[in-house]
Amino acid sequence: MFGKKKEQPQIDKEQLELIKNAQKRIKQKKRLYVHFVIFLIGAVFLILANTVLGIGEDFKILGKEWFLFAILIWLFLLIYHIFNVFITHRFMGKAWEQKQLDKLIVQQKIRIEKLKNELKNEAPIIAKSEHYNDSLKKKEIAPELTIIVAAAENDAIGKDNKLIWHLSDDLKRFKSLTNRHHIIMGRKTFESFPKPLPNRTHIVITRQSDYKTPEGVIVVNSLEDAINAAKNDPQPFIIGGGEIYKQALLLADRIELTRVHEDFEADTFFPEIDTSVWKETANIFHTKDENHEYEFSFLTYERR
C-alpha cells in the first residue's frame, strides 16, 4: 500500500559549487563565442557598407576610412571581453574573493588576539568573591584603593585585637600615609583605638544595625558601601582587620606593607600576597635599635 520513497542522490556542497561554477563558465564562453561571431559579421558589414554601398565614403578620420576606427573600437571591446572571461573571472572569481576574505579574517583574528593579550595585562584582576561580582559593576571603585598593614614573616598581624609589637617608625609611617584620608576598617579594629585618630575620616564596617560611634565616624554594612563612601578621596586606605583585608585584596590597587622579620603567635593573619598578581616596587630595610625590637622592611606592592 505504501511504497518506499526513492532515495535522492546526495550532492555535497563542494560538488554543487563545482557544478555551478562549471555552468557559469560555459555561459561566459558561449557569450564570448556569440560576441566573436557578431564581431566578424559586423566587421564585414561595415566594410561592405562603405566600399560597396558607399555609406560614409566621404567621411574620413585622420585620412582613414571611418569603418577602420569602428572595427578597432569593436575589436578592443572584444579583447576586453576575452580578458574578462579567461583572466578576471577565472583567476579573480568567487574562489579568489574567498581566498582574500580568508586572509583578512586571519589578520583580524591575529589583531584581536593581540588586543586581548594587551587588555589582559592591563585590566584589573576581577573579583572572585561572588558577593562583589554583581554589585561592583554598579559602583565606581576609588582610583587608588590602598591596603596598609604590618605583618610578620608568618603573616601574623594581631592577637586578642591588639598589635603584637611596637615599632616607632612604622607608626610614624602609618600616620604620614593616612593623614587627611579616609581609613576603612572593621568594627573590632575601630574598637582597638582609644579614640578616633585625628585628621582622618573613619569608615567602620559592621553588621550591627544600631552600632554607636562618635560624631564624624561613618558606619556602613559592607566593604562595597565603605568604598562608595570614600569615592571623593583620591586614596582611601584599608587598615584592617583580617577579614576586611581578605576582601580588599581582590579590589585594591596598592599594598603598603611593613614586614616584621620574625614569626609570632597570633589569631589574626594577613592573606598571602600572590606575586603573580602583585609586583614589589619599593623595599626599605630597618635594623633593630633602641626604639625597634625587631628588624623590619617597608614594602610597596602594586597590582600588575
Rank of each mutant, 00 (worst) to 15 (best):
I126C: 05
E290W: 07
N179F: 08
F270H: 12
P196W: 03
N21Y: 05
W278R: 00
G56V: 10
R254D: 08
L115Y: 09
E7Y: 05
N117T: 04
N50H: 13
E113S: 06
E118N: 00
D155W: 05
L163Q: 05
F296H: 05
V85S: 08
R200K: 07
R304E: 15
E302Y: 03
S192R: 13
H35E: 07
N84D: 06
K114D: 07
R111P: 05
I203R: 10
I19T: 07
N228Y: 04
F39S: 11
H81N: 13
L249W: 02
K246N: 15
L167S: 06
Y132I: 01
A150P: 08
D267V: 01
R111W: 00
F285M: 15
K103Y: 12
E130T: 12
K120T: 11
H182Y: 15
E7R: 14
I157R: 13
F264A: 08
L197R: 11
F270K: 02
P214R: 07
F67G: 00
L197K: 04
Q98A: 03
I238T: 15
L77E: 02
V220G: 09
I105F: 09
W74S: 15
K109T: 01
L40E: 02
Q8M: 01
T178L: 05
E302L: 01
A252E: 04
T258H: 08
K137F: 10
A230R: 11
I284S: 04
F39E: 00
R25G: 11
L171M: 12
I71R: 06
N133H: 13
D155P: 02
I205F: 15
L167D: 03
P236I: 14
A151D: 09
L119S: 09
R173Q: 12
T88W: 04
L16Y: 11
E14W: 00
V106G: 09
D263K: 15
I227L: 14
S192G: 08
K162S: 13
T51G: 03
K109I: 03
H166P: 06
N154P: 14
H131M: 08
R180P: 10
D267L: 08
T189R: 03
D169C: 09
I244G: 07
K4R: 13
L250C: 12
N283G: 03
R207T: 12
R187S: 02
I55W: 14
F296M: 08
G216L: 00
R111M: 10
I244R: 14
E14S: 06
V85I: 09
I26S: 09
V85G: 07
E256V: 07
R254Y: 09
I82R: 02
Y33M: 14
L163A: 04
